[in-house]
Each structure stands twice: as C-alpha cells, then as structure tokens.
Simulated scan of single mutants.
Amino acid sequence: MAIALVTGTSSGIGLATAVTLARAGHQVIATMRNLDGAGELQKIVSAEKLAVTVAALNVDDDASVENAISKAIAENGRIDVLVNNAGIGGGGSVEEVPMARFREVMETNCFGALRCIKAVVPGMRERRHGCIVNVTSIAGRMALAPAAAYAASKFALEALSECLAQEMKAFNVRVAIIEPGVIATPIFGKARPQPQDSPYPHARRQAALFAASLTKPTSPYVVGEQIREIVDGDSWQLRYPVGSDAVPFLTWRASKTDEEMVEYGGASDEEYKILMKSEFGLDVNL
C-alpha cells in the first residue's frame, strides 16, 4: 500500500485518480483548493468506504502547500506518491490575454506543481523511494493557437519533469509525465468567454475542435487507471500520452515542420474544416 497525495481532486482527472488509487488499496490524501468542492468525492468515498482523507491545499500558496504536506507526513509518516494534477485552463490569443492571466496560469500549472515537488522530494530522496506523477497535456508537446498561456505552462512543467527525473534517478525515485488528450472534464465548462469582436479566428476553431472530440468522450478514469498502473508498477518510462486522441495528435505534430504548423495557423475556416476531417476524421462546426 502506498500513501499517495493527489492535488486538484474536486473533479475531473484528480477525482478519478484519487478514487482509482483508493480502490486499488492505496491510502489517498485528496487535496483541493476549496473543500466546498469535495461533495462528489465524499459521496464515492462514503459509499465505497475508501481510504481517502480530504484536505485543503492551494498549490498557488507557499504556506498552504507547506502546511498541508507537513501535516500529511506527520499523520502518515511519509508520502510515497505525489500526483500533481491541479491545473487551470488558459485560452486566448497572446494579444488579448492579460499579463495577469498569463501569470495566473503559470503560477498554478507550473509553480504549483513545483511547490509540491519541493515539499516531498527531501523525504523521498532520503528514503530512496517514491514516485512523482506530473499531469501535463499533449499541449505540453504541441502548441496550438490560441492557447499560449496554457501550452507555455505545460511545456514548462514537461521540462521541469524531465530534469527532475534525471536528478531523482540517482535516489531511486521515479518521475512520470501524464499527457492527456481531450478528456471529458469540467475544465471545458470553466473556460473564460472570448472577446466577441476578436480579430482572431483560432478560439472558435479550438472550441469547435473540442466539441467534435467530445462527441466520443474519454473518461477521466482512463487517466486515473494509467496513473494507478504507474504507481503499482516499476517502470522508469517518462512520458505517457493518455486518451484515444493523444498519440494521433502527437504523431501528427511530429510529422509536420514548424513552418507547416505556422501555415496551418493561417488557414481559412474551410481549409481548417477539411484539415480536421482529413487528418483526424473530425467534423468541426464553425
């Protein structure tokens, strides 16, 4: 049995991961920014009598991270597994997204994970045992407009994770990167409205792409199960694309030159629809 701390568990991938790990017999500390969002998780935990403790943790706040993780270690003796899942979206063109929003997205998606990592790494290093799972996105390996803030934060977490994996190998601590594709989670409903008079066509194209992808939704429990397999296994594999569209999207990006991607950004609506149909079999409605 591992003692696992999971961030961002009020919904989506975090909730699914906490439940999946607990169902597999692990003891889970399920953290979230606001405990008012714990209702769905608490219902599952209560009904199934799972070994899950819900705790408040705001990854944006140094003191919150330090207090929550120190308390978890004091109560459990150690943390074997850290799953950095807490994250926010960040769509919109570079011109139109305020600097404050760029900072907010980077703070949560990259620095939030880093805070948690720095809080658990000393114990894992000293025990020469542990597993850190960072949830990024296929957007951490392919940047598509208009998601500069989000993609930049995920690219940063990918680079951080790759360096961390090299550092922790010497101490027998595994690091894994989870790269979900389009997963059916509440994050899409939390997207901020785009300017109605925006001169950029990319936001509505991205919205149409997500809508088309979600006609055959991938459950967040698919991601949770992949994380469980990592925790229960002994693989040193670094990256795990997850979801039916993850590998196809990454393979498609790898097949394109940078210049082709730039050209793709300037396509007309009709050219975009044809591209999505021919490359991915998706019918996007613009």
Rank of each mutant, 00 (worst) to 15 (best):
T215F: 07
T215W: 06
Q166G: 15
A151I: 13
A4E: 13
G12N: 03
R128A: 02
N76H: 13
V135Q: 09
E162V: 05
D232T: 02
D61M: 05
L275G: 03
L275H: 07
V105S: 12
P146W: 09
H129R: 07
V231I: 09
A267L: 11
I230F: 11
A16C: 07
A55D: 00
F188K: 09
A18I: 05
V28P: 12
H129E: 04
P186C: 02
M276I: 05
P146S: 07
G92F: 06
V133H: 04
P98D: 02
R204Y: 06
S161D: 09
I79L: 07
S268A: 13
T9C: 10
I187E: 12
P122C: 03
A152E: 09
K49V: 08
S11F: 02
D283A: 11
P186E: 00
E263M: 12
A4S: 15
D197T: 11
A30W: 06
S137P: 01
A22M: 02
I177G: 00
Q237W: 11
L157P: 01
V54Q: 13
P180F: 10
S219F: 02
F111C: 15
L250I: 02
N67A: 04
V52I: 15
S219C: 06
V223I: 09
E66K: 11
A156V: 00
G123Y: 02
T215A: 15
R125E: 01
V59W: 00
S268L: 01
M261W: 09
R204K: 08
E271C: 05
I13Y: 01
V59F: 04
R125P: 00
Y264W: 02
E95R: 13
V121D: 15
I227P: 04
G87H: 05
A72F: 12
K190L: 08
A143H: 02
A191K: 11
K71L: 10
A56S: 14
M124C: 05
A149D: 10
L164H: 00
S10D: 08
I138S: 00
L82H: 00
I138T: 08
R33L: 02
